[in-house]
């Protein structure tokens, strides 16, 4: 048994997330193998089912790439709003038990509604397209921020809380010196979850009524029966997601360097 296998229950991903950067050889080999297999399949299958890489890259060059920026701006904007709302409500629910008792079922209700329903509500309720998209993203992402932050706040170790209380902090000090910093790891994790959630949801939200953005680009590609364009957009989305996750992981490493 190799020594690193002895670590036990920890997943490979969890271990790699904390390891110093090294070239991800296995990942690159795996992806290259997939790409090669894809190319080979494309030789035997008509291009409107599996287009070859040549076609995909040609489509890639022809795409309106400003759509990428538009979609990214929507995601980032909605995430910032969701974060402020989610954390603000989490603090209110943490500070007051009655608020928590009333608000928790409502939050659960929000989380139980499928994304498609939110999109339909957005279309029925709001006229302005940007607001529709923002509404759907916020209503999906804010509860994730809220629940993760609140659970982390409530999970702060009693030992540490007692230690701090023995020094007689004010309520604000107890929160800023202990509860909030103890919640940072959970907040970073919920950013990661929400980023991939938002990138997947935004494209669906953009299908309805938007005339810009990657979702709209996908609709156009589908209407033109341009399979290689659909694949090109998909490729862009996947790359964005991977890059965003890599950036967040680095940020996490910097902020959480106090962790063993």
């Amino acid at each position: 048994m190799r020594p690193e296998e002895a670590i036990g229950s920890e997943t490979v991903e969890a271990r790699e997330a904390r390891a110093p950067f090294r070239f991800p050889r296995e990942m690159v080999v795996g992806l290259l193998a997939l790409a090669v297999a894809w190319e080979i399949v494309s030789w035997f299958v008509p291009p409107f089912i599996v287009p070859g890489w040549g076609r995909i890259f040609k489509s890639l060059l022809g795409l309106p790439l400003d759509f990428v920026l538009v979609t990214l701006a929507r995601v980032v904007g909605a995430l910032v709003v969701s974060f402020v709302l989610g954390l603000g409500l989490a603090v209110a629910m943490y500070a007051s038990t009655p608020v928590e008792r009333y608000a928790r079922p409502l939050v659960r209700l929000l989380m139980a509604v499928p994304v498609v329903c939110w999109i339909l509500f957005a279309v029925l309720w709001f006229k302005w397209v940007e607001f529709r998209i923002a509404f759907v993203l916020v209503v999906v992402c804010a509860p994730v921020f809220l629940v993760d932050a609140l659970d982390a706040m409530k999970g702060v170790s009693k030992d540490l809380r007692d230690m701090l209380r023995s020094f007689r902090p004010t309520r604000v000090q107890l929160f800023t010196k202990l509860v909030l910093p103890a919640t940072v790891p959970a907040i970073l994790t919920s950013w990661k979850i929400n980023l991939s959630l938002a990138i997947r949801v935004v494209t669906i939200a953009e299908l309805v009524g938007a005339v810009t953005g990657i979702g709209y680009g996908l609709v156009v590609a589908q209407e033109l029966f341009s399979v290689s364009e659909v694949f090109a957009w998909t490729l862009i989305l996947v790359v964005i997601l991977f890059l965003a996750e890599a950036v967040l992981t680095r940020v996490e490493e910097r902020i959480l360097r106090w962790r063993a």
């Binding site: 030992d159 540490l160 007692d162 230690m163 023995s166 020094f167 007689r168 010196k177 202990l178 910093p181 103890a182 940072v184 106090w258 962790r259 063993a260």
Partner: peptide, 20 residues
């Protein structure tokens, strides 16, 4: 409770340091 600000300190069974 608050009267004892700065007059009382405890060392616990575990160190209870803030890890961050």
């Amino acid at each position: 409770f608050d009267h004892f600000r700065g007059t009382l300190a405890a060392v616990f069974q575990q160190d209870r340091l803030l890890p961050w």
